[in-house]
Every structure is written in C-alpha cells, then in structure tokens.
Nucleic acid binder design. Structure first.
Length: 867
RNA sequence: GGGUGCGUAGCUCAGAGGGAGAGCGUCUGCCUUACGAGCAGAAGGUCGUAGGUUCAAGUCCUGCCGCACCCACCA
C-alpha cells in the first residue's frame, strides 16, 4: 500500500474523526468494567485556548488508553453558560453596535444571549473535535439545559430547607462594571502603590483632635465612629468622647476595639461600617449606624452631601482638596497595599453592605474535608491536597446571588403581603405562609459555579435515578488546573457528598497552567496567546497533542514556545516515513508464526526494547506521568526503532531473512502505533489501518501487553556492544576527516558471530573484518572492552601523534570515571555497609574500566615507541 | 504573617539515593532511494549556596540567597 512522502495532517484528521463518530466508538456500550471522566465544561465566551487544549489532550490520552485496555469508557462533554463572563462578552459585543443591555428587556436580552450561546457552543464543539477528543457527543450537556436547571433548583430548595442557604445583609464584593456582587473567590488581590492620608478629626467641644490614617479618604462620608485599641495609652483619654467628622460635621463616638492595630498609622481608625468588612464587624459590635454612601455605579449618593454625583475617584480628589484647604489634612505617605479587582473585568471591587443569598459552607465542608484527608478523593500531584485542605479548614460562606440576567434564576418567590420567602422548584403563585397571591420572583441569578458544582451528577440525569448515574457515578478522575480548585473542585466534592452521598471522583489530576515562553500568563492584553486552532492548522492536532503531553511534567507552569510544535511535527513526519518504509517492503508479506529461537540478535534486541517501552509507557500513564510516557515512546521509536533496527534490517530485507524481518517490523510498528495512539490518534489511525495485520480501527485495538519472554538482557547487552563498535568506527572516520561513506577495513581481537559481523559491516560501512591477535600497524583503536577490541585500518592516513592524543584523552576520561569506583572500593565503610550486589557491581565496573585503561595505555605506549 | 513550587548544558526543561539526560541552539562531515521535517559525529555541566544525614547526595534534612505563586491581613 502506498502513502505520500510527507506527513500532511490537513484533511486526514477530520476524515477520521467523522469515521469514529459514525462508528460510535466514543459511546460506551454499558457493560464491562467502566472508566468515566466528565469534562470541565468550557465557557461559551469564545474560542478555546491552550489551557483547554492541554486539558482536553490529557483527558483524551486517558480515555483512549483506558478504552484500548478494554474499559467501557464514558467521557462526557458539555459547556458552561459562564454567567458573568458570557454576559460581559455579549454586552461588549452589543456595545460595538452602539447598544447596551438597557436597550432591551430581560427577555429580549436573554434571547440575544441564547443566540450567542448556541453559536459559540457549536464553535467550541468543533474546536474540541478538531483536537480529537473522544467524548461521547450523544451525552453532551449544557449547564442551562432544562435537566441541569432542574437539578440546580432542587439543590437550592433542599439546601434552603436544611437551613444551609440564607439571605442576609452583609458586606459583599461589588463590581460596578459588571453590576453584580461576587464571591470572595472571584476577587483577585494585587499589590498596588497607594497613598495613606493622615486626617485630623477634631474632638467635640474641645480644642483637641485625633489623627486617623486612611487609604480611602472618600469613604469618610460614611464614617460613623473612630476606634482605638483599648490598651493604647495615647488614646485612652479620648474613648467615650465624640469626634467631629470634617467636611460633614457628623458626630462620631470614639470607641475602643481590639481589632485596631496600634502600630499602624496613628493607631486611630476611622470606622466606615458600610464599606469595609472589618468596620462592618466593629459596627455590629458597637451598634453603630451604617451609612452607605455609594449607589450601584459607585457614585456618591445623597448621603454624601455636596459630593453627591461624583465617582469614587472624583470624590477622593475633591475631598482631599477640601481637607487640605480647611487644614484637616496632616500629611500623605506612599503605601503598598493590596487592591481587590474583579476576576472577569479587572474593575476595582467595592465592599458594600447588601442583602444577598449565601450558602453556609462549614456543614457542607465536613465530609468533603475528611474525604480528602483520608484519600477517599486523591489529589495528583499530592501537594494540592494541602492547598485544598487549607482552604477547607478556613472556608467562609459563599455568596451565590448575582445581579445578572444570564443564569439560573433564584427559585425564590417573595410574598409582598407577609414578606415570606417561598422557595420552590417550580413556579409558585400563592404564598405558602399567608396565602397571598402577591408574589414576585427574586430578580437575581445564581453564581455560575453553583451549577458547575453539580456537574458530575447533574450531567448524568440527577435528580432522576438514571442508569448512567448508577453505572458511571462516581467518576474515575477529574482533570483540571489548580486555578479552580476552590471555585470548582472543592464545591463539587461538597455537593457530591451532600446530594449523591458519594464522592464525585476518585482522583483529581491537577495539570499545569499554560504560559508563554517567558512564563507570563497568556492573555489578550499581552497578545502573547498561542491559539490552538492556529497550531492545529499549521502543525496538525497530533503534533500539538504530543507537544503538550511531553511538556506536561507535574509542575506548576508549562512554558510554551511555538518552536516546540515544530519539533514534534518532525516526529510525526518520522513516524510517517518509517511506516512508509515498512509498507514499501511488504509487497510479498506473509504472516508467519514466529519461533523466537530463530530470531537474530537485532530482532531479539528490538523486541526486548519494545517490551520495556510498553512497560514504561503503561506504568507512566497509570501514574499520570504523561511527559515520561511520551518521552519513552519518542526515544524508542526514533532512536531505537528507526536509527538502529530499521537501519540494520535494510540489509537483511534483501536476503533470506526477509520474511522474518517483515514480520518483526510489522509487529513492532503495530505495537508502537498502539502506544502512540493516545497521544496522536489521527496519525496512528491513518497508518495503522494500512498495516497488513491491522483490524477495523486502532481506536478499539487492544493496548500492548508486556511479554516477559521478549525481555532479553543478554541480547540487549550484546547488541549494545555491536552499537558501540559501530559508533567507534564512525567516530574514527570523523576524527580523521573521512566521509562516513568511505569504506574501511577493521581488525577484531575477540569473537564475533557471522551475524554480528554483518551488522558491523553494514551499519559501520566496513568492507572487511579480519581477526587478529594484536593491534596491527597503521590502525586506529575503535573499541576496547575486556574481551573484544576493534581497530580500523587507516594505512597511510594514520597520524600516530593524533591517535596518541585521542587515546590519551579517552584514557583520561576513563580514569576519571574509574576514580569514583576505586575510591569507593578502597573505603572500608563502603565494603562493610553497602549492599552486596552494589559492591559486586562496583567491583565489576572497576575491573572493566581497569582492563580497558590497561589495554589502551598499552596501545599508547606501543604507538609512542614507534614515533 | 502562613503555605507551595522552582534554581541541573547557551535556551527550555526531564531526572529524586549507587557511573550527569533530552529537545532546541552551536560546531564538523554526509545529495546513504522512508524521512534534509533527514543521517553520522562532536563540543558544552564543581546539578543556586553553606552545612548535615548516609558507606554513598542533583536526589533526603536544615539554614541562606535568588525567582515565581497561593492564602490571610493591609486604616
């Protein structure tokens, strides 16, 4: 069968993907041992990025590997409606058309977002397909599907009934751009250079004052107290007195509270209970008034008097000017402090006192914490366990209401007559408490992560008792990045135990974050993103996948440089051409029952190497060491199979060994392609199906098993020697500047079989091998071991001085290496304490070095005698 | 303040108790009929630093120096 001369991924990939879908390989059969992964649903905000590509590649490697191992694999796909992110994206889109959300009713706006969602879902689906993901599309889910929405409502209602959901007025994080509150996790803190303002607050009816320090002078409009530490002598005389708020005139009690740090600023704190979480607590403790000075756009409201209508920033400027003018401003200092910003739009977060819905987390956290402590749910790499646990130990309540339109509307109908919250899974028209019909559903939607938390079971049909839940829950592994351990992983574990009474997954594999080649986060603003679709287009999905896999060591970051893709595209091409070579030599192929004893040395060598590779790849995949698995197959295929085995058998294919060699080649190639398939599904399918021994599809081919009978240390050792002899011969040619195409003659002291001589002649480009008792004149030393020495006849080309220098260098190196062993062996403690096999091994190595050095030194002194 | 990870070849990174590895880059040869997206050969490292454990330390422990990051606090 003929194939083209170059690896060309275009066209080939989608052809196979369609074929796989038609054959239904990705839909599990529903019987036998199962393996299940649910995909982390991508947001429908746009294109997938490299992080998704890595995430999907890893899951696909696992899925395909397990499928080949005979597991009934379900990899369940879907997308996330991504509340804030999507609404922001749509609003941005509308603004390019000169429109805004306010131009539409809620229903109209939602219909626009639904169009958007449908469009991007299709696009993302295509993108996932183009990577080659073997997901079961017949089970695709979306977080806003009716079924999943039902699950969301049921969970809300049940948590409410258990008293784990409550509504209350607390300080929350407000993003004025998004127009919604955020959970604590959605706020990202950054160190920023700020200013600390020292302001004089006069004492009422006294000619005295206290100085407070603040980074946010504008919030003084909402001050309702001044606080000092109870044991701060500097201020004890003021406690109980009243300060006058400059510019405003409000009377502020001076109170003592332990929260105040006497060493910060002046040790006196202005208390703004409505705009700072700590001040809020102080306000509660001391029963202070709460004065909210901002509206929803963080513009000063009527409580700000003459500053009304100014943004926070403008207000700060105006207030500072005014303070200075009136002599209240004492001094300003630079101060580094951290500022919270919205994780979606980077707007500065304003703490505000608002009435919101919360989930009480401590009760939910209990089992989810124990489960991870006891490794019922295991983190890989293990260090993330600690990160998870630390967060769980300190868990705080979760603000789940969002002032958005896009999402799951909160299933609460408040009665206008009696104020009762009617919490219900379905629309309610009559108040269950007072019977009134004046009900209004809560305007807010739920945090997008609320539905994500249910993903492992809601996608399988919960709350119905479905066959899928029965069979596939709990899932086997969750593959995700560390950045969403708190957002998502922790919450899934909590919800899984709460509603399924069972963990959602046995293991959590945490992979790296993909960064650019300088280690920076890939972002739109930096323009340093690498678009997986462009990479697929230019290099192919298989090389991209292989690149990501081989870089996926268990670290924190994956620094990605586009040039890596080129390297592994070359590898794909190598696989392509190696297969092409094999196929070109199969015109008269006939399958043989191979008798191992009949095999030649190279055959035994490659089979041994193959089975060791099978072992290593299998073990590495079992432990999520994708980089090791990929590296192993890369080296085996390129170095051993292509550069040695195929090179060696080129000659043998012409001879009477042809049949046998064809069979070994096909076998080794077949097994190699299977090992490669999880990494490079398209290429391996394309090539494997062309092999004479192949079946219907490599997707459903069985995973290679290690056959101990093929592991043959003796043949490996012997062929290793042959390789070293050949390298030695080539080396000498390079040393004396002979082209490798120049045939040379060699002399051998020792024993080599006919077959071994054949390899040396063919691969070393050696014309003739003569056996001798000692080194002949005018020859260079290519190889020296205890029982075998190989010399290359150079005739007049030999430069004795050069040869001496070369050998001396070699001896030097050998001596250096031997030194370590000699040292060890002369150490009594080593001999006494080291395990016997190590001592023996060391002695043996030392002996080998010693003899080699002896031999070469003798050769050197012979040569020197002649000069 | 609490925690995590990382310092190994010029670059990017593997390796985690017994002779320092890969890819890229560099240098030298090769128009060898599968592949120049290739083949052969070579140069290049006191494994951040100081101690400790051990017969034996890139590898385990401790301190230090650098670089990232997470959590909490930040008037």
């Amino acid at each position: 069968m003929e194939i083209g001369t170059r690896y060309e991924p275009k066209g080939m990939e989608m052809k196979w993907y369609k074929n796989w879908l038609e054959k239904g390989y990705f839909t599990p059969k529903g019987s036998g041992p199962k393996y299940c992964i649910v995909i982390p649903p991508p947001n429908i905000t746009g294109r997938i990025h490299m992080g998704h590509a890595l995430n999907i590649t890893i899951q696909d490697i696992l899925s395909r590997y397990k499928r080949m191992q005979g597991f009934d694999v379900l990899w369940l796909p879907g997308e996330d409606h991504a509340g804030i992110a999507t609404q922001t994206a749509v609003e941005k889109f509308l603004s390019t058309q000169g429109k805004s959300k306010r131009d539409f009713s809620r229903e109209e706006f939602l219909s626009i977002v639904w169009d958007w969602a449908n469009k991007y879902r299709t696009e993302i689906k295509n993108q996932i397909m183009s990577i080659g993901a073997s997901v079961d599309w017949t089970r695709e889910r979306f977080t806003l599907d009716e079924g999943l929405s039902k699950a969301v409502r049921k969970v809300f209602v049940e948590l409410y009934k258990k008293g784990l959901i409550y509504k209350g007025k607390y300080i929350v994080n407000w993003c004025s751009r998004c127009g919604t509150v955020l959970s604590d996790e959605e706020v990202e803190y950054q160190e920023e250079e700020g200013t600390l303002y020292y302001i004089r607050y006069p004492i009422k009816e006294e000619d005295d004052f206290v100085i407070i320090a603040t980074t946010r002078p504008e919030t003084m409009l909402g001050d309702t107290a001044v606080a000092v530490h109870p044991s701060d002598d500097r201020y004890s005389k003021y406690v109980g007195k009243v300060a006058i708020l400059p510019l405003v005139g409000r009377e502020l009690p001076i109170i003592a509270d332990n929260y105040v740090d006497p060493s910060f600023g002046t040790g006196a704190l202005k208390v703004t209970p409505a705009h700072d979480p700590h001040d809020y607590l102080i306000g509660q403790r001391h029963n202070l008034p709460f004065v909210d000075i901002f509206d929803e756009n963080i513009v000063v409201n009527e409580n700000g008097g003459k500053f009304k209508g100014l943004t926070a920033e403008q207000a700060r400027k105006a207030i500072v000017e005014e303070l200075e003018l009136q002599g209240y401003l004492v001094k300003v200092e630079k101060l580094k402090h951290s500022v919270g910003r919205c994780y979606r739009c980077d707007t500065v977060i304003e703490p505000r006192l608002m009435d919101q819905w919360f989930v009480s987390m401590k009760p939910l956290a209990k089992r989810a914490t124990e489960a991870v402590e006891q490794d019922e749910v295991k983190f890989v790499p293990e260090r993330w366990k600690k990160v998870y646990l630390n967060w769980m130990y300190e868990i705080r309540d979760w603000c789940i209401s969002r002032q958005l339109w896009w999402g799951h509307r909160i299933p609460v109908w408040q009665c206008h007559d009696c104020g009762h919250y009617n919490v219900s899974e379905s629309e309610i028209t009559k108040c269950e408490k007072c019977g009134g019909v004046n009900l209004k559903q809560d305007e807010d939607v739920l945090d997008t992560w609320f539905s994500s938390a249910l993903w492992p079971f809601s996608t399988m049909g919960w709350p119905e008792k479905t066959a899928d839940l029965e069979r596939y829950y709990p899932t086997d592994v969750l593959v995700t990045g560390f950045d969403i351990i708190f957002f998502w992983v922790a919450r899934m574990i909590m919800m899984g135990y709460e509603f399924m009474n069972e963990k959602p997954f046995r293991e959590v594999y945490i992979h790296q974050l993909v960064r650019d080649k300088y280690g920076r986060k890939m972002s739109k603003s930096l323009g340093n993103g690498i678009d997986p679709l462009e990479i697929i287009d230019e290099y192919g999905a298989d090389p991209m996948r292989f690149t990501l896999a081989i870089l996926a060591a268990q670290g924190r970051d994956l620094k990605l440089d586009v040039k890596f893709f080129d390297t592994y595209k070359k590898f794909a091409n190598k696989i392509w051409n190696a297969t092409r070579f094999v196929l070109m030599n199969l015109d008269d192929f006939e399958k043989l029952d191979i008798n191992y004893e009949e095999l030649s040395l190279v055959d035994k060598w490659i089979l041994s190497r193959l089975h060791k590779a099978i072992q290593k790849v299998t073990q590495s995949l079992d432990s999520y060491d994708f980089n090791i698995a990929a590296g192993e197959i890369y080296n085996f295929f390129w170095d051993e199979l292509c550069d040695w085995y195929i090179e060696a058998v080129k000659n043998r294919l012409k001879k009477s060994h042809r049949r046998l060699v064809q069979n070994i080649l096909v076998y080794v190639l077949d097994m190699s392609l299977r090992l490669l398939h999880p990494f490079m599904p398209f290429l391996t399918e394309e090539l494997w199906t062309k092999l004479p021994t192949s079946g219907e599809s490599i997707v459903i081919a069985s995973w290679p098993k290690v056959n101990q009978a093929f592991i043959d240390e003796i043949s490996e050792k012997r062929f290793n020697m042959i390789m070293n002899i050949i390298r030695g011969v080539r080396n000498i040619r390079a040393e004396v500047n002979l082209p490798q195409s120049t045939k040379v003659c060699t002399f051998v002291k020792g024993n080599l079989s006919e077959e071994e001589q054949e390899y040396i002649k063919f691969l070393g480009n050696v014309e003739d091998i003569q056996f001798v008792d000692q080194r002949p004149e005018q020859s260079a030393t290519a190889y020296v071991s205890i029982d075998t020495e190989v010399y290359v006849s150079l005739g007049a080309l030999i430069d004795v001085e050069n040869e001496v220098v070369r050998l001396k260098k070699k001896v030097e190196k050998l001596k250096n290496d031997m030194e370590k062993f000699t040292k060890k062996l002369s150490d009594e403690n080593f001999l006494r304490n080291a395990p016997e096999d190590i001592v023996e091994e060391t002695k043996e190595k030392q002996r080998i070095f010693h003899e080699q050095i002896d031999r070469i030194e003798q050769i050197i002194s012979d040569l020197e005698a002649k000069v």
